[in-house]
Amino acid sequence: MPPIIRTHDLRKTFRSPKRRPGVAGALRTLFSREYEDKVAVRDVTMELEPGELVGYIGPNGAGKSTTIKMLTGILVPTSGTIEVAGLVPSDRRNENARNIGVVFGQRSQLYWDLPLVESFELLRAIYSVPKDRYRANLQGFIEMLEMEPFLRTPVRQLSLGQRMRGDFAAAMLHNPRIVYLDEPTIGLDVVAKEAIREFVRHINQERGTTIILTTHDLADVERLCRRIILIDKGTIIYDGTVEHIKEQYGTHRTLVLTLTEPHPNPILEGAEIESNDRGLVRYRFDRRRARPDQLIREATQRYELRDVSIEEPDLESIIRRIYVEGYTQEPVNS
């Protein structure tokens, strides 16, 4: 199957009048013709297969939202090409709109003054969703997202979590083939996050919807995505599986021992003590050089143990390291 989303050397440069400080500066700003160019997205090339669920990850200001706006067609690229389900989004805004669903965590698409369910009715009319399909979809969403209690509440009075559920349902009512989620779990509690993740997974798996997910909560990514695209300063720095990046960066594991008796320096061959707090000892080891079973055997021979566990590095610590150090093919382990 051909890719459903394809961008090539996509670039967006924002131009804004050069600002100067102070009152005199403000006056000069008003009359000057000097501009500052800011490249928000720099030569981004990506392809998504139908049915993929990709995490689009990067630090603040990396260019994620800008990319997504270009994919929706409300922002015109400065250069490069985009094709979404065979259309150029900014040329065919209306047709493209029928193929896509969008959730912006920071901004609602619901109608503020109307009860939630009336926003859904409006969207039904906007997308000309057949009545029976609308009813079936809505019924399913109400159950999955537990929206029954606040269906008739004006959107303005909904809590953030309730509103987000409403926004998710609103984005999926017309069975879009592609969905863009821009920080959809921002500000949600753990239960609401879980409900939303489950919903996203359901839409992706049952309907085969292609999804791009932007988030700063890497637990979202770990739960949902096989593939991630990392972007920094407008440039893609990694495009591949979560597994691969973990393998690449996660060469170290942590061995945690609970000793029956505290020990001042409970050394192990091939592992490095990270911390030792009244018998709770954390060791760091390179899994290419030391084997966990050998370490544990050594530990049981030398010390009396109450508990043993091994921790895998989580995506969050890996991504944090990439943000700080930049991405390299062969990360040097410190």
């Binding site: 067609g73 409300i74 209306n94 896509i100 901004r107 698409q109 906007i126």
Partner: peptide, 12 residues
Amino acid sequence: EGTIATDLMKPI
């Protein structure tokens, strides 16, 4: 409120 973009994203 910066919500005009939301309307531009609809097929209307």
